[in-house]
Amino acid sequence: MIKAILVFNNYGKPRLSKFYQYFNEDMQQQIIKETFQLVSKRDDNVCNFLEGGSLIGGSDYKLIYRHYATLYFVFCVDSSESELGILDLIQVFVETLDKCFENVCELDLIFHVDKIHYILNELVMGGMVLETNMTEILSRIEEQNKLEKQEAGLAGAPSRAVSAMKNMNIPQQLKDIKLPDLPQAIKELKF
């Protein structure tokens, strides 16, 4: 089982938090903070597993994470999950984001946290892995987006226009932060 999925940036700012076990908001923030402290002090060339923090988990739980450019993707899982399997899952998640946002960067996560959640919901449900096949995931997301567009219809058009105008303010250079090329070794792990 997956207990929590956290995404935060190099400074510990949360970009996505999904807890599959209840913690109140204060506790959630503390967990994010603690996890950030544990993960951020690790070099990039050390292993991607570490024994869970004191707040979340206990001896049965592990933190499995990947660090992409400015973002940490951390999964807190128990012993029923395969460590390498979860690493692959993170990879699938990020690649899916990359497909959905075309060169995903931190800003996409900042401004579309709701969409990230919807994508995540197609991978993991209630702490259990729902789907690992990226084509399947993408087609499900696509269909739901289509549904949303249909509903918006004409009425949605003006608001879309307005929001498009608002969005023009975003400095373009920030958009350019891209994910690095994924190491070959990781690709080989793919299912």
Binding site: I110, F111, A155, P158, S159, V162, S163, K166, N167
Partner: peptide
Amino acid sequence: NIERMFDKNLTDLVR
């Protein structure tokens, strides 16, 4: 609907 357009949406909040 038109009024709504100028309400603060999620993007505005984040920004």
